[in-house]
Design a protein around this nucleic acid. Structure first.
Lengths: 323, 323
DNA sequence: TTGTACGCGTTATCAC
DNA sequence: GTGATAACGCGTACAA
């Protein structure tokens, strides 16, 4: 099947034709067993275990990564085996996947460090969006810190805000932590007081963002600008603000992170930091394929840069143009 | 590995522990070859080959189906192998996938009837959102016709519109065709003139919808209500209408189909037909697993019903409540 | 209960 | 260049 040089080209074609007419399909298991390569890459992502409704709104993030991964895998003739892994156990699926693929991409918060270590002893693994500094593996992540630093600086330098707040995602999320650091850097660089901790936490969800906003409002002393750790929390907060008759951006400016599809359709359109989610998946698979080819090359870390997307929620004018 | 009854339970635990300490992972290929089941289900979806930018906005549909499929597959301990198939050839990936799975879910427009037939001779296949009536396979689809009939009737009965238009998706899309039929049924039932063909086509994309809208405007005789074949086209049209200083819904009412996440964030929020995309994926995998268990059971077709989601773009009041 | 040999469908190696 | 044959790693049936 894989030998391209055959005696008689005619015979080859004939066999191939008959084979397809007969509906013959090569057995992948046998191929894999004999050739020691499956032609499949695995992709593990976290199953947040959210109620279906919430999940439906949210996880554009993972979806885009999957798309990117599928895309570059396909360009190399490989398929992608996906599996959501619950934080609470259920790792057996992960191991099962590990036995069926040539390598895997492991998204952050889907597997414990120990399990990653175990698996990576059998097949190569690339970490996606994990805490920076884990140099034991190939790694691809986005420059969260610079991204948030950029929006925050924009709020300060361009709109002259001096009372700012940051709303974080779930505890322990490397992404959220880095974003908070970026916020602190920008605030510090402007000579403003640097907070010890985020002003609130919203779990990266819309409802969480709404609740966080409520808390901030009830505390009094509403900040003039709020940097949210992601877009969804900003969306939830936006609703709460509107219901509280607080105007955005006149009374309080808000920004997000991710630039999910809804962001530009909000009123006002959300100023945010664009994250190349799809490219994240693409790069991860690229790294993985490279490592499969050369298992003993030096570890690589890829940082993808973000892009500030200025719309109206920060206080900038939005020209009423189309796109 | 699969024999739960062992002589000495202690020994069993010991072996398992050592195995995991050694980082041993069972070889899926060998398991598959010996047991004749891979523990993997395949999912083929169409690669529309759109530019990345357009794709990023759009394919919520496929993503949700993937999620649903992954979800129920995981509940049965199975992983999902996904592959995007370009309409233009590239079917080799599809066949490769077919050799690696216990069965596949094939989304409409991803594979030719002939290829489906060939593959299904080797492994069970379930068709997703294909033309109704293909009773040769297990089939799951959404009740497009009733869905559009419902919105259209709403426009007629509730808002007393008599000049309506339908904007279709790509030529040859079974979904689009069924939705047009639903439109015609509603229009006919109300005693209004039934059109021969859709008033315009928008390829199911946002830009396509915008262009279609332009065409309708330039034709003069703007209909008072426009039923779009999906949400994205409605979004594109909405922008064009606003740029043309036409008010929605005062000057023209519009509706969509799918209820993608952006729909409720638009201004005005889009009245649309909710399609249980995720459940589509779930049901497809359920059918597939059932067929794998009993390959000679009778064919099954599952129709999922839609739900009319009334918001403001049709002319209804939207109470300014929060969800 | 425990051990052993065979088969799964393909690739790869080695004589010819 | 061509054609046999031994792995590949795990289930499983059968013998001990």
């Amino acid at each position: 099947m894989q030998d391209e040089s055959f005696g008689s080209e005619r015979t080859r074609q004939l066999v191939l034709r008959v084979a397809s007419e007969l509906g013959w399909v090569p057995n992948g298991a046998a191929q894999g067993l004999a050739s020691r390569r499956t032609g499949v890459v695995g992709l593990l992502f976290p199953d947040l275990g959210l109620p279906a409704a919430a999940e439906e709104e949210s996880p554009l993030y993972v979806d885009q990564v999957i798309r990117g991964a599928e895309r570059t895998a396909a360009s190399m003739g490989m398929a992608v085996l996906i599996a959501a892994v619950k934080a609470s156990g259920g790792k057996s699926l992960a191991y099962s996947v590990a036995g069926k693929v040539d390598g895997m991409v492991i998204m952050s918060r889907s597997l414990s460090d120990k399990d990653i270590a175990t698996i990576s002893r059998t097949i190569p693994a690339v970490l996606l969006a994990n805490k920076p500094g884990s140099h034991s593996y190939d790694n691809v992540s986005v420059d969260n810190r610079t991204g948030v630093r950029d929006v925050t600086s924009h709020l300060i330098a361009h709109h002259f805000h001096t009372s700012l707040a940051f709303v974080a995602g779930p505890h322990g999320s490397p992404d959220s932590l880095e974003r908070f650091r970026g916020f602190c850097e920008a605030v510090g660089a402007a000579g403003l007081p640097v907070p010890e901790a985020p002003s609130a936490e919203g779990n990266f969800t819309e409802v969480g963002g709404g609740k966080a906003m409520h808390r901030l409002i009830e505390q009094g002393e509403l900040p003039r600008a709020i940097v949210f750790g992601n877009d969804e929390m900003a969306i939830g907060a936006l609703k709460v603000l509107q219901d509280s008759s607080l105007r955005v951006p006149e009374d309080v400016a808000i920004t997000g992170f991710d630039d999910i599809a809804v962001a530009r359709h909000l009123h006002p359109p959300l100023t945010t930091v664009r994250q190349p989610m799809r490219e994240l998946g693409e790069q991860a698979v690229s790294l993985l394929l490279a490592r499969i080819q050369d298992p003993r090359a030096s570890r690589k870390s890829v940082y993808l840069s973000t892009e500030l997307v200025v719309r109206a929620s920060c206080g900038c004018e939005t020209p009423r143009t189309n796109e």
